[in-house]
């Protein structure tokens, strides 16, 4: 080999990530490439030192305990026939939401009928906007009876025009709040059983018991905002969606927050 080694090949030699015997032979007889390799070695030491300056000490035992607890919780939930590891499969989650939505719409329609006992019940339990309705735990489409109804309840609000504010109180540290951006003008909030909801024009408030909260925010309403424990997690602005909350994951139509401890 007569041509000099390029930087990539020299780097592979430095990092011992090549078995290029030909390159080694060239190196043995080429002072320029040997010098270049020495330069790369010095550069590597400088890079290593710079990266090491960023390092911190970590509480490994606290992390071990948290991971062990979450794995145990996931295993227990799996034994009950539910999948909760990390994130639920999207299809299952949103079929659950769709089923809940159907029930909510049904409940809302029933509540609109004059003389409906549901209307009276809703009025007594949830003051405010009649466009909102709440339902008992939603069923999972096609699931056996044993897997029905995670302990959740929900509220749906029709919002013909903005603004829309969703305000959550009492969300426990470590809980996940999953926000789904949906087309249309209907907002919904699902939270564990025992949670309390109130609504007024353009506003939904929930005092939630510990567990996952799921929110559907309509993209047809502007502006929208989500406030958790007095802190803005999400709001629409002229520039787009601003998300200052503690995001765990984000896709085009879904944002997962985890409440900090």
């Amino acid at each position: 080999m007569s041509a000099h080694l390029d930087e990539g090949r020299l780097l592979a030699l430095r990092d011992r990530d090549t078995d290029g015997e030909e390159a080694r032979r060239h190196l043995a007889s080429c002072a320029a490439c040997t010098e270049a390799l020495d330069t790369l070695r010095a550069r590597g030491s400088a890079v290593e030192a710079a990266l090491s300056s960023l390092d911190e000490q970590w509480d490994v035992e606290a992390a071990r305990s948290r991971v062990r607890g979450r794995v145990a919780a996931a295993s227990a939930a799996a034994a009950r026939g539910r999948t909760v590891v990390g994130r639920r499969p999207r299809a299952a989650l949103w079929s659950l939401s769709r089923a809940a939505g159907l029930l909510l719409v049904t409940a809302a329609a029933a509540s609109a009928l004059p003389g409906s006992p549901l209307r009276a019940w809703l009025g007594a339990r949830f003051g405010g906007d009649e466009r909102a309705a709440t339902v008992p735990p939603p069923a999972v489409e096609g699931a056996p009876a044993a897997a029905l109804a995670p302990e959740a309840t929900g509220i749906r609000l029709s919002v013909p025009s903005g603004p829309l504010r969703v305000v959550l109180h009492d969300v426990a540290a470590g809980s996940e709040v999953r926000v789904r951006l949906v087309p249309g003008t209907e907002a919904s909030v699902y939270a564990p059983a025992g949670s309390r909801f109130t609504s007024a024009a353009g506003r939904v408030e929930a005092r939630v018991t510990p567990g996952e909260v799921r929110i559907e925010l309509p993209t047809g309403v502007d502006p929208v905002s989500l406030e958790v424990g007095g802190r803005i997690y999400l709001r629409s602005t002229e520039a787009g969606l601003e998300v200052p909350g503690p995001v765990v994951t984000r896709t085009e139509d879904e944002i997962l927050f985890r409440i900090p401890g």
Binding site: D6, E7, G8, R9, L10, L11, A12, D17, T18, R43, G44, A46, V47, A50
Partner: peptide, 18 residues
């Protein structure tokens, strides 16, 4: 990877001031 990594490392090193 070798070529891409060499470039990344060079850019980082230059950004450090080297």
């Amino acid at each position: 990877v070798g070529t891409l990594l060499a470039r990344a490392e060079r850019r980082f090193f230059e950004a450090l001031g080297g």
